[in-house]
């Protein structure tokens, strides 16, 4: 069954060296369609570096990256985004001088077609386009439950709300694959739950999700498949259950305590 599903994101022997430092060392994995794939590991393991290579922020030193069997090495960030890969950032990257609505509308900029010269003369068309874009943004805000915040400036929102806005902006690009870099970091439990619910809902509606996360609660409950990195290398791969009981993962990342807790949870 698992073998029949198509590959969404495939990394083949990816290595990234920054001068002397090998941030990612010969990492390969294959993310299948209809999955929530998690990449976990201690700080400095190379997770964000991996996402940055996937999104074309910098090229891998060696190795190939495929998105739906199409090699995306050497493509620019915006070209990769246009293929349908949306992302959020570990440290929020919002447009701080603007309102929530405007932030979302920038996310949808690429769905507008009127060029600059045409814009200067085509009054009706550009107005219609703006209305369309606004409506789409309003839909997304409603989906995320932040429609009340539309006019608020993003920088005055709480951290949790800002994370939702960033997710909304990624949704506006109409992605088929969403890369979330530590979405639950810095959220209080109720916000975390809200975020997880949204992500699960998006997954159910057909989006594939690639997740980097430290919060084991989130990772183990949400993801369908996990790859564990440590010092740039892959040390394990498998379903959440397999990962939880993998001795090497426990040693490098989860810690002995976690095994006891997990075992206890299983008994309950």
């Amino acid at each position: 069954m698992a073998e029949e599903r198509k590959s969404v994101l495939r990394l083949e022997n990816i290595t990234k060296k920054f001068q002397g430092l090998t941030a990612v060392d010969d990492v390969s994995f294959d993310m299948k369609e209809r999955s929530i794939y998690a990449l976990i590991g201690p700080n400095g393991a190379g997770k964000t570096t991996t996402v940055n290579m996937i999104t074309g922020v910098f090229p891998p030193t060696t190795g190939k990256i495929y998105y739906r069997d199409r090699c995306i090495n050497g493509m620019k960030t915006f070209e990769i985004a246009r293929l349908g890969i949306g992302r959020t950032f570990q440290n929020l990257k919002l447009f701080n001088s603007m309102s929530v609505l405007e932030n979302l509308m920038i996310g949808g900029h690429e769905m507008t077609k009127i060029g600059l010269v045409n814009f200067c003369f085509n009054f009706g068309g550009s107005k219609k386009e703006e209305i369309l874009l606004r409506e789409r943004a309003e839909e997304v805000m409603e989906y995320l439950g932040i429609q009340d915040l539309a006019k608020r400036n993003v920088k005055n929102l709480s951290y949790g709300r800002q994370k939702i806005v960033e997710l909304g902006r990624a949704m506006m690009t109409g992605p088929k694959l969403l890369l979330l870099d530590e979405p639950a970091a810095g959220l209080i439990p109720s916000e975390r739950k809200e975020f997880v619910d949204i992500v699960l809902r998006m997954f159910e509606e057909g989006m594939d999700i690639f997740l980097i996360e430290h919060n084991m609660d989130v990772v183990m409950n949400v993801s369908t498949y996990i790859t564990v990195l440590n010092f740039g290398s892959r040390i394990a791969e498998g379903t959440p259950k397999e990962i939880q009981s993998d001795p090497e993962v426990i040693k490098a990342y989860l810690g002995d305590k976690y095994q006891e807790i997990a075992a206890k949870e299983r008994r309950d």
Binding site: T55, V57, K76, T77, F78, E79, A81, R82, G86, R87, F89, K93, L94, F95, N96, S97, M98, I106, G107, H109, E110, R169, A170, M172, T173
Partner: peptide, 15 residues
Amino acid sequence: KAIRDNIEAVEACGI
């Protein structure tokens, strides 16, 4: 304005 605010995020939006 978005470019002024945060250039990486603009690129991530496919722009």
